[in-house]
């Protein structure tokens, strides 16, 4: 019984996702013509005049989404801090009653 319910739920979710993807296609129904292109067109058309840089990807990485790059750099910094913390030299602690 549980397996039947699980299969039914999976089918419903699958149909829902399929309908959602079909909704994303363009008016002609053509593949490769997405609907929501306002942001893409903005970046592609205006990044040269905004940033005076040819590479749109770099313009997005370092100007429009600069905070994301800052987060990546911070992740790297904390990774290095973790490595330095794990591999630091530790003096062995004397255990036992001796002083």
């Amino acid at each position: 019984m549980r397996k039947v319910f699980a299969m039914l739920a999976l089918l419903v979710i699958f149909a829902f996702l399929l309908l959602a993807v079909a909704e994303l296609r363009g008016e002609d129904g053509g593949f490769g013509e997405p609907v929501h292109t306002a942001m893409d067109d903005y970046f592609l058309q205006d990044s040269q005049s905004h940033n005076q840089a040819n590479n749109v990807v770099t313009a997005i990485l370092f100007d429009y989404r600069g905070l994301d790059t800052l987060g990546e750099a911070t992740v790297l910094f904390s990774a290095v801090s973790g490595v330095l913390t794990v591999l630091r030299k530790v003096k062995p602690v004397k255990r036992g009653g001796k002083e």
Partner: peptide
């Protein structure tokens, strides 16, 4: 050209090169 984008590229390159080198060096040591 590019304004601050090449400058930020240079800074990030400095940081990434030093960070990965430091990780490699610490692991080898």
């Amino acid at each position: 050209t590019g304004g601050t984008i090449p400058m930020m590229n240079i800074m990030v390159g400095l940081e990434v090169a030093a960070a990965l080198s430091l990780i490699l060096w610490m692991m080898a040591k």
